[in-house]
C-alpha cells in the first residue's frame, strides 16, 4: 500500500473525515474535520468523495515523505508549503512523485490546514469513521515515524475547475438555543450585540470566548448537545462546542451555530472577534 511517512510531525496532526454521527446514542463524539468547508474543498479539487479521509494539521504542519506517485491538495489556513523545497500553492491540485517530501510551515491565517490525497487516506475505520479520537481510534494524533496508507494513484483525480479558497466571515449564523428564551432581555441583547473575542482556551472539543455574560440560570439536567452548541457556564463564560465535544452537557444552551459557521469559527485565531446573528 502507498504510504506517507511522518518525518517530522506538526503541532497536532490527525486523520479526519465527516465523523461518526451515527453513534451519538453510545456517547461517542462526532469528531471529523474542524473546518468541514476546507476539507470538502480539498477533496473536491481531487475529485474525491467528500467523505474521503484527510490529514488535519493544527497551527503548524510537519514534514511528510511520499512512497509512490499521487495527487494532493492543501486547503484551510494559509502557510508556507514546499515540495522538495520548492514553494507550491494551496487550493490547487499538486502532483507528487515517489520519494518527494512535503513540508508545511506555521499557519499565518486561521488554525487548521488540510491535506487531501487522491482516493483518501486509508487508516482504520472505527464505528463508521476514520476520524482520530483518543479512546476510539488507536491514537489521537500522529507522531514522527508513523506511516499512513493512502489509496493507489489513479488518473480520475484530475478536474479542470478553478477553485477559490473558502471565504471567512466574522458573523456566525445561529439558531436560538434551547435555553435562549430563559435569558432576560438584557442578557439576550448582550449576547447578540457584543463582538466576542476568541480566548486562548481552544481545542478540538471547544472554543472559549473572553467576554462574560452575567448568568443567573440554573444548571440543566444533562441534555443533548451538538458541535456548534454555545453553552453559558455558571460563571458567565461562553463555550462554543466543537467537533470532539461530548454528546451531553449540563450548561444552558443559548445558541446553536449553523453548519457553515462551525467551520468558520474553527479558523478564528486567538484574539479575533466574532458576532452572533440569530437566523
Amino acid at each position: 500500500m502507498p504510504r506517507i511517512t511522518i518525518l517530522q510531525a506538526g503541532f497536532y496532526d490527525s486523520i479526519q473525515d465527516k465523523g461518526r454521527k451515527k453513534h451519538r446514542h453510545l456517547g461517542v463524539p462526532c469528531s471529523g474535520a474542524m473546518d468541514q468547508k476546507a476539507a470538502d474543498l480539498a477533496n473536491s479539487i481531487l475529485n474525491n468523495t467528500l467523505d474521503a479521509a484527510v490529514l488535519e494539521l493544527v497551527l503548524s504542519g510537519g514534514t511528510y515523505l511520499f512512497s509512490t506517485p499521487t495527487c494532493i491538495a492543501i486547503t484551510g489556513a494559509k502557510a508556507k508549503v514546499t515540495v522538495n523545497d520548492i514553494a507550491v500553492e494551496q487550493n490547487k491540485l499538486l502532483e507528487i512523485k515517489s520519494g518527494e517530501v512535503l513540508k508545511i510551515g506555521a499557519a499565518t491565517t486561521g488554525n487548521f490546514m488540510y491535506v487531501a490525497i487522491g482516493g483518501g487516506f486509508q487508516t482504520e475505520e472505527v464505528l463508521g469513521s476514520k476520524s482520530f479520537y483518543t479512546g476510539i481510534t488507536l491514537m489521537g494524533n500522529l507522531q514522527k515515524g508513523h506511516d499512513i496508507d493512502y489509496a493507489p494513484y489513479t488518473d480520475r483525480q484530475f478536474t479542470k475547475a478553478n477553485w477559490k479558497p473558502v471565504s471567512q466571515e466574522s458573523a456566525l449564523r445561529c439558531y436560538a438555543g434551547a435555553e435562549f428564551h430563559l435569558l432576560d432581555r438584557k442578557q439576550q441583547e448582550k449576547l447578540l450585540n457584543t463582538s466576542f473575542t476568541i480566548s486562548k482556551n481552544w481545542n478540538r472539543m471547544a472554543f472559549q470566548l473572553e467576554e462574560k455574560i452575567y448568568n443567573s440560570l440554573e444548571q440543566l439536567k444533562s441534555s443533548p448537545v451538538l458541535p456548534g452548541t454555545v453553552q453559558l457556564t455558571a460563571n458567565g463564560q461562553l463555550i462554543v462546542l466543537m467537533r470532539d465535544a461530548p454528546t451531553t452537557g449540563g450548561y444552558p444552551r443559548v445558541l446553536q451555530l449553523d453548519e457553515t459557521s462551525i467551520s468558520s469559527v474553527a479558523q478564528k485565531r486567538v484574539g479575533s472577534q466574532v458576532d452572533f446573528i440569530v437566523l
Partner: peptide, 15 residues
Amino acid sequence: VYINQGAYSLLVVTE
C-alpha cells in the same frame, strides 16, 4: 436518523 437522549429530552439529527 441519529438520536441521543438526555434526562428529559432527546435530540433527533438527520442528514
